[in-house]
Amino acid sequence: MLPPYRAYSPLIGMRRYFADLLAVLSRRYKLCHITRHLAVYLLDLIMDYYDVHLTELYTISIVCLLLASKFEQREHKVPTLADVNNFSCMYGPNVTITKKKRLEMELLILKRVNWNLCLPTPAHYIDYYLCASVTPTDLHNGWPITFKAEARGLIEKYSHYFLEVSLQDHVFLYFRPSLVAAACMAASRICLAITPSWPITLRMITQYSWEDIAPCVDLMLVTYHKNIRAAMREKEQAMLLQQQQRMESLTFQFPAQVLFPPSPCYYPQAQHQDVPSQFQLPMRDPFAAFRASLQAPQSRSLASGNSSLLPSVSTAQASSEVVPLQTRSIQGSTGTMQVDILEDPSHYLSLVLGSSYFSTYDSGTAGCLENEQSE
């Protein structure tokens, strides 16, 4: 007969921490799940009947694990006191358990359970129930189960998960251990979409109907869905953090001036420092004096069908500059005549810049032809 659980401990809020601590120690020393469940149950009994300090509660939890491992494990698997003290210095509070303190706590625990450590826990029943976890009439999403061994392995994993869930909350101590194990089986089948959720075989083995285990199954499924939502939130936060880090790395590798280059139509002033001054605005007209000389009346000489058209240039200009000439043939109504025309690259620039030099030059040439025809 198990002692009744009352949940009277003033430190019941710290129960989850010590249950997790015992789970960590069990994984560290590779203890079986039965040992861990028995150690947590011994801790619950001491917390429920004794008002102990927080530091002493840490010592009691370690001693509960050592006592449960002595009862359930083989001798070479039992952790030594020196190993536990080293672990507490590295990961837990700096509490050193002496041999004398260990014996005192072991006597206190054994007196509380009347020297009887054969206390059943849900872990003692789960292996027996797993033998009938999959029946020949089971369906998965309405279809027969072909690979029954794989289905049995999945049910085993889920049932051990729900066993860990039952250790996290003291509310499961109000149910019988055999009923908690049966609820773990039913909750596993529900999560895996195996119908019926509570077959006749499991009902006969456990001696519990669906109405008996339904409240405990509901508590397990509520905790299961809470854990799923918490895991999804953590995953989303991790993905957002990765995206933020990726964007920061891209911003660091590609600065803004590279991602957004200036428009092709924009030319900074510094790019035109090497351009000659005659191509900058306002531009100086080098042929203003030459056009003025063409517009003024000049004397022209004609000889033997050849005409020479020369601008009036000052003596200083003539002496300092050599004006290149090119002979062109002009076809008229009365015959062909040869004309000397000024050859200068700036003459062609006037077409682009819109100067009146070319029109003035044509008018002068037309005037020569008219005088020749009149004569």
Rank of each mutant, 00 (worst) to 15 (best):
Q271G: 02
F254T: 11
P93W: 01
R27V: 00
V322Y: 14
A183M: 04
T251H: 09
E104T: 07
N141F: 14
Q295I: 09
F260R: 13
L309E: 02
L11C: 03
A123T: 01
S159G: 10
T59I: 12
D212G: 02
N85L: 04
F162A: 02
F260N: 13
E150T: 02
V165A: 01
I60S: 11
L259Q: 14
L281H: 10
V171L: 13
Y224K: 04
S304N: 15
A82W: 03
Q278N: 12
L353M: 13
S359C: 06
L38M: 13
Q245Y: 10
C216G: 02
S9I: 01
L353I: 09
S178E: 08
M1S: 15
L221T: 06
V313I: 10
P297W: 00
A132M: 02
T201S: 14
A187I: 01
P136V: 00
P177W: 06
H76I: 08
A19Y: 11
A82C: 04
A149I: 01
P286E: 06
V352S: 06
T195F: 10
L302P: 04
G332W: 03
Y49S: 15
L281N: 07
A289C: 08
L154Q: 12
A292K: 11
Y17H: 08
S308T: 05
R15E: 11
I194A: 12
P264M: 06
I62D: 12
A182L: 11
Q242F: 11
K101Y: 09
Q280Y: 02
K70C: 08
Y266F: 15
D51R: 14
F172P: 06
A19D: 03
L31R: 06
S159Q: 05
M14W: 03
F252Y: 09
D48S: 12
Y8W: 05
P3A: 06
S355W: 13
R176G: 07
T98P: 10
P199Y: 08
P297D: 13
S320A: 15
A151E: 12
L43R: 02
P282T: 07
Q207T: 03
L351M: 00
A366C: 06
Y174L: 08
P262E: 13
H170D: 08
C32E: 12
Q253S: 10
T365L: 15
G364V: 05
S26N: 00
H37E: 07
L294V: 07
A68L: 08
W198G: 00
L179M: 13
M14L: 04
E56Y: 13
L325T: 10
E106V: 07
L173Q: 09
Q253I: 00
E75Q: 13
Q73T: 00
E211C: 04
L103T: 09
Q242W: 10
L351H: 01
G332C: 11
F71E: 06
P268M: 04
N86R: 15
I213H: 01
A151S: 12
Q168L: 09
L221W: 06
T223M: 04
T137C: 14
T137P: 03
Y125F: 15
A230H: 12
V113E: 11
V78N: 00
K148M: 12
H53T: 08
M105I: 14
P261C: 01
L202V: 03
L302K: 04
W143D: 02
L110A: 00
L108H: 10
G92I: 00
K148S: 05
R284I: 07
Y266E: 13
W143A: 10
K30L: 08
